[in-house]
């Protein structure tokens, strides 16, 4: 059961996801209180262990905010992150959970609006499910 105020962990790349979050805050955009933000040096540091552990600890969903393809400062961190997310989504389906509990979201640093929208969309998905 997902509560009215779902717990979402956002793993944020320091180069894109984190600035996007800060941007959303500076714009005063609505972000749910249940959002927990974890900064990572690169989207590629979002390891499968972290993502599953977050769900294991009780998060309703996990979002990975990383750079767009071709923009990774470390060449392939974002691609690795996306592949891990896809792997875990498949696994979630097999254990009877919605794959939407783990999503990969490429963002640009100055896209607070998009950050807030993506989080809101995730909240809607969770509550609708």
């Amino acid at each position: 059961m997902v509560s009215k105020n779902p717990k979402i962990v956002a793993f944020c790349c320091e180069e894109s996801g984190m600035p996007a979050y800060e941007h959303a805050v500076s714009l005063g955009l609505d972000l749910p209180d249940g959002l927990k933000v974890v900064a990572l040096p690169c989207g590629g540091k979002a390891e499968t262990g972290y993502l599953m552990k977050a769900l294991d600890e009780g998060a309703d969903a996990v979002m990975v905010f990383a750079c767009y393809e071709g923009n990774c400062k470390y060449v392939r961190g974002n691609i690795r992150a996306e592949k891990r997310v896809n792997y875990l989504r498949e696994r979630l389906e097999k254990i009877g959970l919605s794959p939407e509990k783990i999503v990969f979201c490429p963002v640009a640093p100055a896209s607070g609006q998009r950050f807030a929208e993506l989080v809101q969309r995730e909240v809607d998905t969770l509550l609708g499910a």
Partner: peptide, 11 residues
Amino acid sequence: MSGQQAVLRIP
């Protein structure tokens, strides 16, 4: 609310 979230920053 914006800015009320728990945040873990890189040391």
